[in-house]
Amino acid sequence: MKHFVLCLLLGCLCVPPAYAAEPETAASLVALMRQAQYSQGFEARMNVFVTKANGAHPAPMKIAVIGQFSAARQRLLVRAIAPEALRETSFAIAKQANRGIKTVKYRAGGELIGTDAQARLFDTGLVAWDMLNPWWEWASQSLEGKDRVGGRECLKMRSRADEQDSPVREVESCIDVQAGLALRTRLFDGGHNLLRTITVEKVLRKHDGSGSLAKKLNITGPAKLRTDIEVYAGDEEYLVSDETFAVLDRPMRAE
């Protein structure tokens, strides 16, 4: 009997846990990450809290982000809810056919102004370019082993830009495969200087259980600017109408 129990215990220890199979190649991990962000429409409302290098805090912000991600189309709408001075200022962001990113700034009823995708939105650490994760489209991707972020195990992945003139030349992501989420993303320029780091602090399970979403994250850099973002409400099945992203098709003036 004792031997049977011992064998049973040893057997249990030897059986691998029933985790989802880890991607074996960089390509399969990239495919997983692209798939994870696909959505017919979502909306997330967030509190944004900025801490400047000198420790000063501008007024806390509230923003709403509407998104639609598919293989063919990736676009976002970022709208300020508060404070009053920024209310109804919005950015429409879309990935274009040439893999460039179009960013349009506008106020309700005002003119449309084309802006730089690398510019910070609302003077926070949010950057339009980062929000579309264009590095998953790059050809050069390599797996670099495991790491831990906030106590969670993740797979390190290095993505290198196809274009030599890209302001972001290299991106290092640490991906929680179970969650389908990069827990930490570091962006570097051509001189391998760290531009900014995006770290997920809290995750929230998707309502269909297919993965997780970032509930709380922070962005550090540039110049010691820290942006803390927390999602306080959302809709994973937001109904995107024809009007939602219509501004992207209208004529705009350059900034």
Binding site: L204, R205, H207, D208, G209, A233, D235, E236, E237, L239
Partner: peptide, 14 residues
């Protein structure tokens, strides 16, 4: 409500 609505707020639906 939705099947998986065990969060603080059940997720919205049409």
């Amino acid at each position: 409500t939705r099947m998986a609505s065990e969060n603080t707020m059940p997720s919205p639906f049409r």
